[in-house]
């Protein structure tokens, strides 16, 4: 090793991620103050929390075992309605998303198309599905159609945005290579863009189906069809064993959906 008179420094400090110390400490301090304020202004009724604990216990106990028998028919009906709602909303949403997504990709579309499609994406992403569902129920009446509308709108916002981002982030050389062969716009999309984004898009559509099912299980809370209505009824009637049964069915379906979609994604890629 080097002698003590070495010309080299004895210590080294990792450069800070944020170089300006004022900004760094300002951010740290600001975050600390914010968290303190946020926690400080959180109104919690600890007596109510304490009183609620036995109820929580009862709720938990209801899972062992859950009661599937009493309301089986109702649960199955509600679940099926949720599933079909999710499927049709995913398909409808994706079909609508493809043109919007292509339009919202900066490197594909003329500026006005880009802006218009971005507007569609932004406006359909802004509000949570539940709020959209509340209005869909007001407009289209109670039932799964309202849920279908709400979920489709959500799907467009999700899918078109990711599609557009994926296209914008794609490998430029491949796209240029295909373009340089003298291909038309559609050929270009088909040969250069589609192969690059397709596997991920299939993955995402399965992922969105997942999300849509989960959402379709709750839009019923505001009357837009599916199992959610039964869920909220069971809770308000203190029929926790039914609540547990419904939740377990939802979890089971979500898990199986996830496994299937994982398997399909592997198969696709």
């Amino acid at each position: 090793m080097s002698p003590p008179t070495s010309p080299y420094p004895n210590s080294w400090k990792k450069p800070h991620f944020i170089k300006n110390p004022l900004l760094r400490w300002g951010l740290i301090l600001g975050t600390a103050i914010y968290v303190a304020l946020a926690l400080g202004t959180m109104e919690v009724n600890w007596i109510r929390v304490w009183e609620g604990l036995p109820r929580g216990q009862r709720l938990l106990a209801a899972f062992f075992p859950p009661n599937f028998s009493d309301t089986r028919g109702v649960i199955i009906d509600g679940i099926l309605e949720s599933i079909w709602m999710a499927i049709i909303a995913t398909i409808g949403g994706i079909v609508l998303s493809v043109p919007v997504g292509l339009g919202a990709a900066r490197n594909l579309s003329p500026r006005w198309v880009y802006l218009f499609c971005r507007f569609i994406v932004a406006s359909s992403r802004t509000f949570p599905e539940i709020i959209v569902a509340i209005f869909a129920v007001k407009f289209f009446g109670f039932g799964p159609f309202a849920g279908f509308i709400a979920l489709s709108i959500g799907t467009v916002g999700f899918f078109a945005k990711l599609l557009a981002e994926d296209i914008e982030a794609m490998n430029k050389t491949q796209a240029e290579a295909v373009r340089s062969t003298g291909s038309s716009w559609f050929q270009w999309i088909n040969y250069a863009i589609q192969p690059q984004v397709m596997p991920r898009m299939i993955g995402l559509s399965l992922y969105r189906l997942d999300i849509n099912f989960r959402e379709s299980a709750v839009v019923g809370i505001v009357g837009a069809g599916g199992i959610g209505a039964h869920l909220i009824t069971s809770i308000s009637r203190y029929e926790y064993d039914t609540t547990a049964a419904i939740l377990l069915v939802i979890i089971a379906i979500v898990i199986s959906l996830e496994y299937t979609s994982g398997y399909l994604r592997k198969w696709v890629q």
Binding site: M1, S6, N10
Partner: peptide, 17 residues
């Protein structure tokens, strides 16, 4: 904490040099 012994840091600089 990236607190390596002095001689390691010195050696690292020497090698980089």
């Amino acid at each position: 904490f990236r607190k390596f012994p002095k001689k390691d840091v010195r050696e690292a600089y020497r090698l980089l040099d």
